[in-house]
Computed example of a mutant assay.
Amino acid sequence: MVSTSGAAFAERTTNVARLPAGQVEYRLEGEGLRTILVFHGGHTRAGLAQGEEVFADAGFTVLAPSRPGYGRTPMTTGTAPAGFADATSQLCRTLGIERLATVVGISAGGRTALTMAARHPHLVERVILQSAVGFLPWPDRLTRLGGRVVFNARVEAGTWAILRSLVRLAPSLGLRLLLHDLSVLPARQVLARLSTAERATLAGLFTVMRSGSGFVADMLPVPDCAAQVSQPTLVIATRIDRSVPFAHAESLAAAMPNAELVDPRADSHMIWFGPDYPRIAAKIRDFLAAG
């Protein structure tokens, strides 16, 4: 738990692997017999766990690498999703992981998860996508231009320092500002529906986010491989997500031959804070058990 001012956030311990493809920062947690691979979203990294409790509670080990440009994984490792999928395959071999029960793609990590499943079907058994970016144009032109200005590697540290200060000094104002880009609902309404603990968790997360050189790379187009993903896939996305429009989930579910689309009643991109997340978590556990 973090304080209501977001002054602290429990970042997890990570390691670094030096692979033929380059250096990869990663976190490996749990003592389960089977492993779930989690590709984080934008502005985060391997040490920042989001929504992983459902996997740990189900008895799985979690492997979470920092994608290129985030944390201690340089842009030179893999660079694009295809290259990083291959680098992650090397990481699995190095760690003695022969099969992945599931690969999870969160937000901007969705395309890497799908590419991993398409390129390494022998390794990946199932796929879970959470508020995931698909292969439609993303983000919109205004966001793309603004993102290149305020989140490029030269200035992103200053951008996040300003946002950190705002969240700490005026938590409600700072959270409303950040939530505006995550939901089509009024930010004040989204914030009002969050519990004190949820506000604290979001505030804490926002105060440790960084973009590195990864977020600008996340906005580049990626070859569409959705139709090549034949593994059972659970696509979880809310219709009121402003950050990643619901059309991404619909297009992915339509393109993949073995996909199921689940629409939670979450108020924003952060599906873990939805009023029906216990139902979604149960759906995830059932999906994992079926494997």
Rank of each mutant, 00 (worst) to 15 (best):
V184D: 15
T238I: 03
F246G: 01
G134Y: 05
V235A: 03
R99W: 13
G83E: 10
A226Q: 08
V244H: 04
H122T: 12
T61M: 10
L166Q: 12
G274C: 13
L123K: 00
L63Y: 05
R210G: 00
V244C: 04
T61G: 06
W160D: 01
F273K: 13
L179V: 07
S213K: 01
R67Q: 12
L63W: 04
C225D: 00
G291L: 14
R18D: 06
S230F: 05
L48T: 11
M75L: 15
P65N: 06
A253W: 03
A80K: 15
L95V: 08
A281R: 10
P121D: 11
G69W: 09
R27E: 00
A85I: 05
L191A: 00
P81I: 11
A21S: 15
A10M: 10
G146T: 11
A266F: 08
S3A: 14
R193S: 14
R210F: 04
S243L: 15
T102L: 12
G41A: 10
T35M: 02
F151W: 14
V103W: 04
L288G: 01
A46H: 13
A7Y: 07
L136C: 08
R18M: 03
S251Q: 14
L136A: 07
F215I: 02
V2K: 11
E260V: 07
R12D: 01
S251F: 04
R67D: 06
L178F: 10
D276F: 08
P65V: 02
D267A: 04
S5N: 14
G78H: 04
R168I: 03
G47I: 06
Q228M: 14
F246R: 06
A187P: 11
A254K: 13
S251W: 06
A153T: 06
S89D: 13
P232R: 09
L169T: 15
S107M: 09
L178H: 05
V133Y: 05
F39Y: 15
V104T: 04
A117M: 07
A226K: 09
F135M: 08
S251Y: 05
F60E: 01
G110R: 03
G30T: 03
S131G: 15
M219D: 07
G47H: 12
A49H: 08
L182K: 03
R265A: 15
E260P: 01
L202C: 03
H122P: 03
E31A: 02
Y26H: 09
G274D: 10
F215P: 00
L169D: 09
Q189G: 02
M219H: 10
W272R: 12
T102I: 10
S183M: 09
R188D: 08
Q189C: 04
A108C: 14
